[in-house]
């Protein structure tokens, strides 16, 4: 089996065994998203208006709460240093880790977002727009989170620091993601924000793993 595929499968398998971590992220996502209707009231017009920011904010908070899980366990048990000592491209291996982390931490969010959007009275094609937005935004987010996690690997209590690193870098995604959802619901041409999100996804997947791999080498020094 190809080594990269092998690592991808291994990571998926390990994440499945750490299912409680996956669940933590999903629970965070659902709770944040459901707090809004419970606190601001269930006015349909208002909920439709805030669904965009709410979705992206929930995704950001969910990734913030579970972002330690991407490298920290491997850092502690030593398999991360084995990864850097392999003669395969560390960038490629890190890309596989990011992809598998995305598949296990963000794909469940994408699935759940359908349910949440419908509780916000979103229907029809707008529902698809919400799902695609969360899908695209989470790919960029996962790269930013991976970088932030790798940079703070050797910091003992990185909570606030991670937030500080994550927030400015993910701001464009939050803005354009919210717009993508808003435009689709209102019925304006939403291709612009979607193009932007796709562009950011490509940019983050091309630069993210390289920067993250470099950060891992630094943190292991």
């Amino acid at each position: 089996m190809n080594i990269y595929l092998k690592i991808f499968v291994r990571e998926i398998k390990v994440s499945m065994k750490r299912w409680s971590d996956i669940l933590t992220g999903v629970i965070m996502f659902v709770l944040v998203a459901l707090i809004f209707p419970l606190t601001v009231g269930s006015d349909q017009m208002f909920l439709i208006k805030i669904i965009g920011p709410v979705m992206l904010l929930s995704a950001l908070l969910a990734s913030l709460i579970s972002m330690q899980n991407i490298f920290k366990p491997d850092f502690l048990n030593g398999s991360l240093e084995q990864l850097t000592l392999s003669h395969h491209s560390l960038n490629g291996l890190v890309l596989m880790k990011i992809l598998s982390y995305w598949a296990t931490s963000s794909l469940p969010l994408v699935a759940v977002s359908v349910f949440i959007a419908s509780t916000y009275y979103v229907t029809g094609t707008s529902l698809i727009a919400v799902v695609i937005t969360v899908l695209l935004a989470s790919t960029t987010l996962v790269n930013i989170t991976a970088l932030a996690a790798a940079l703070t690997l050797s910091v003992r209590y990185p909570g606030a620091l991670m937030t500080l690193i994550l927030f400015p870098l993910s701001l464009p995604i939050l803005i354009f993601g919210s717009k993508a959802i808003e435009y689709s619901i209102v019925g304006i041409d939403s291709s612009g924000p979607f193009y932007f999100l796709t562009g950011m996804m490509l940019l983050s997947f091309s630069l993210g793993p390289i920067a993250t791999a470099f950060a891992i080498r630094i943190s292991l020094d």
Binding site: K17, L76, N77, G78, E81, Q82, L85, H87
Partner: peptide, 27 residues
């Protein structure tokens, strides 16, 4: 690194996988 095999203080094994899987999924 193509010629090097290293064992540090930490074992580099993933606790959630079996012994056999750890050796098979090695690099």
């Amino acid at each position: 690194y193509e010629q090097l095999s290293y064992l540090g203080h930490k074992n580099g094994l993933i606790p959630e996988l079996t012994l056999d899987e750890n050796l098979n999924y090695g690099l």
